[in-house]
Amino acid sequence: MKHATRRTVGLALTAFTGLCAFVIVAVLALILADILEGGAAGVTWTFLTQPPSDGMMGGGIFPAIFGTAALTLLMTVAVMPVGVLTAVYLHEYAPPDSLFARWVRVAVVNLAGVPSIVFGLFGLGFFILFVGRGMDRVFGHEEMYWAQPGILWASLTLAVLTLPVVIVSTEEALRAVPLDHRTASLALGATQSQTLARVVLPGALPGILTGAVLAISRGAGEVAPILFTGAAYFLPELPTHLNSQFMHLGYHTYVMATQSPDVEATRPLLYATVLVLLLLTFALNLVAVIIRTRTRRKAAGAH
């Protein structure tokens, strides 16, 4: 082939890869533009602070916002200690070539790949029907108290789902803490746990926060795992107990989009709900991306 032809073909194909990248970005932009356009007008103070009214045709989504926040808060409280300590084990405590550590890694990778709907089944089968029933028996509840869908079970299900996110981010953060700092601390007569608490974890804090934020963003958007573990469509009162059902932005979106008797009438409310959900997850993601880019740059500068 002549050189000029080769160059032209090459350029054309290069341009094609560029086009692929562009399409991805364009689709993202399209989604955002559509939701912004459809929802911006609907996101008002009333919408954010009032419960739904008129059979979902009016009012706001405050209970859904509150439910989502409470759910992810509980989830974060459950997942962070376990996730961070697992990463600490893998990176700081596990002996090299530890078979157990390898198994943990394999489990974490596979846990990340389990479909979210299967987590829903797990939450129902394990937390509600096994743990919940067991607790009712132990505490002598005559009628179902724990053995029913509720915010605690939904948040624990999500905690299991987001565990890999936290572990992976924390481990990356631990890797970024220079070995020198650990050596220096140990040489000064600090124990391993003192080194961990005073040098390693503070150094890894930005990365750990990134993990938390990513987990929250992921957990806030997942609907499939909470379908049978606690989400309710319409529930004007806020969840007050750990076994209360709750409203949720994602679930609300799903039900309004698929089961509304009058799609046209609810469309503005639906768009506004999606916009709120999207803004929430994007804001969280953006925070995570910013922290991470900054720490990566810092880590790169330190070496």
Binding site: D180, A187, L188, A190
Partner: peptide, 30 residues
């Protein structure tokens, strides 16, 4: 205990990303 009696200074200076005071106080605090 041994490392408190036998201290060490490394080839590459490796202060902690803390204040000067906290760096020196580190061994005492732990």
């Amino acid at each position: 205990d041994l490392r408190r009696r036998v201290g060490m200074v490394f080839q590459k200076s490796n202060p902690f990303p803390k204040s000067i005071f906290e760096n020196v106080a580190y061994g005492l605090r732990v």
